[in-house]
Every structure is written in structure tokens, then in C-alpha cells.
Amino acid sequence: MDALFSQLFAGVSLGSVLLLVALGLALTFGQMGVINMAHGEFMMAGAYTAFVVQHVVSNAGLSLLIALPLGFLAGGLLGLLLEATLLRRMHSRPLDTLLVTFGVALVLQQLARDIFGAPNVDVRAPAWLQGAVLDTTIPKTRLFILVLAVVAVSLLALALKLTPLGRRIRATVQNRDLAEASGISTTSADRITFFLGSGLAGIAGVALSLLGSIGPTLGTNYIVDAFLVVVVGGIGQLKGAVIAAFSLGVVQATFEYSTTASLAKVLLLVAIIAFLQVRPQGLVALRTRSLA
């Protein structure tokens, strides 16, 4: 019973990590259709932000709380820079974007290696996040990440639904031409969407620093999983990403418990391929009147 519960939590926790990692991608890939291979490196930037902040602010708890908004800014600004300099020249050329962002990812990795050195670095978890919750086997760090993921996804959903900015973003996604004809600046909507998505990657990076170590290749470990979540979830809908992240998390943890870590990954990929045969559009598909 105890093992079952721990295992269920392990799955949900893995799901929350996946959600946090994929949330930004659900915006940039899902809403804008940009294949951003450098998304993982924006996470890395967030993680290194946590490391730098901890050097300046020695109190681990305070530094984590400061690192979250700063990580958002670091990822977001990098994203903004990428959008403004390269990506806006490549709308409707998704394959070129794939290659360009992959190149940018390699440049950012090497940059991190040059600045922070090849060996990985460590961020201390604050005292109130160490150990397990009460008498259970639930690690506090994982609970924190779960809460963070839920808060991030709720705020994002509310912002998209209720604010004028959110309406502009949704309008641009659903029908770019009509949105433009109605006086919406799609350029600035794109830019803000990309800023938000990349910023969320930065937050994910800060959260990941609690689970593992921080290195130049931190992002590459997660980028494939992030794309899987968005593809399975369905393009253009946050709801899909949320369901997909938690299902993939629980399914992978279950596979891993009953087989091995390597085999679990294989089984999960096979399951996803089978699923996409049946539902190529993903779990939740966006209905659109756009002709594109």
C-alpha cells in the first residue's frame, strides 16, 4: 500500500515536472507553431540563474524565491532576443526554424560551458524543502514543484482567457489574417507569446535545479519529453498539455516500476506512437476557422 502510494506520487510528480517543462513549449510550439529546439537551453538559463542568485543571496530559501521571477526574466529575455533577431524572419518556414534554433541551442550550451565551466554545479535546497513531508515518503521538493506547476498553468490559463492580451494571443492563433484585419498587431502578440513561453522555460529550469544538478546539457535531457507532451496533448490547447503531462508521468512511472528505467522509456514511446496512429491530432485538438 505504502509502495503503491509512493509510486503513484512518483508518477504525478514526474507529470508535474513534464508539465512545467512543456508548458512554455505548449505556448510557443502549440500556439505559434515555432519548433524551438533552444527551449531546453532557456531552461538551462533559468537553472543557472538559480545558481547565480544563490551565490549572491546566501539564504537558500530567499534565493529560491528571488530566482523564480529572475529565471522567468532570463528565459523570457533570451526568447525575446531570439524572436526579434531570427525567428520573425522565418514565419511559415518551420524547417528552417528547427535548424536555426538547434544551432542557437548549441551556441547557448557552449556559452554556458565557457562562463560556468564544464563541471556541473549544485544549488542547495532551502531547509524547508529538505526531506519528506511528515511521515510520508513524499519529498518536499517534489511537492513544491507540483504546486509550482499547478500555479503556473492556472495563471497562464487565466491570463489567456480573461485579459485583453490573452484574447489577442488567442485571436492570432485562431486566425492570423482576420486578427490582423481587426487591428491586432500580430507581431507584438507573437513577441509577447514567445516571451511568456520562454520565461516559463526559465521557471522550469529553476525548479529542476532542486531535483538534479545544473550543467550545460540540462535542457537536452528534457527537450524530447517536452515535445512529446505537446504533441500528445494536441496542438494549440493548454488543457491537452496538462492531461498529457500527467498521463505520461504516471504511465512512465508505472512502466518503470514494473520493468526497468530503460525499458520504460521504450514502452512509453511505443505507446505514444500507437496513440498517434489513432489520434494524430493529439488528445485535445483546436478547432479553427483558419485556412492555413
Binding site: 512518483a10 510528480s13 517534489r142 538534479g212 512511472a253 516500476y257 526497468t260 528505467a261 530503460s262
Partner: peptide
């Protein structure tokens, strides 16, 4: 006896098995 792929970063399940 548990193996994780190189670069594996989520050890919740393996540590659960270890504890059990």
C-alpha cells in the same frame, strides 16, 4: 538491481524500489 539510461534524471521510482 536497477539500471538507468545515461543522463537519466528522475530517480523517484528507482529510489522507491530501493526503499521497499
Amino acid at each position: 538491481e536497477e539500471y538507468a539510461p545515461l543522463g537519466h534524471t528522475d530517480f523517484a521510482t528507482i529510489v522507491n524500489k530501493l526503499k521497499a
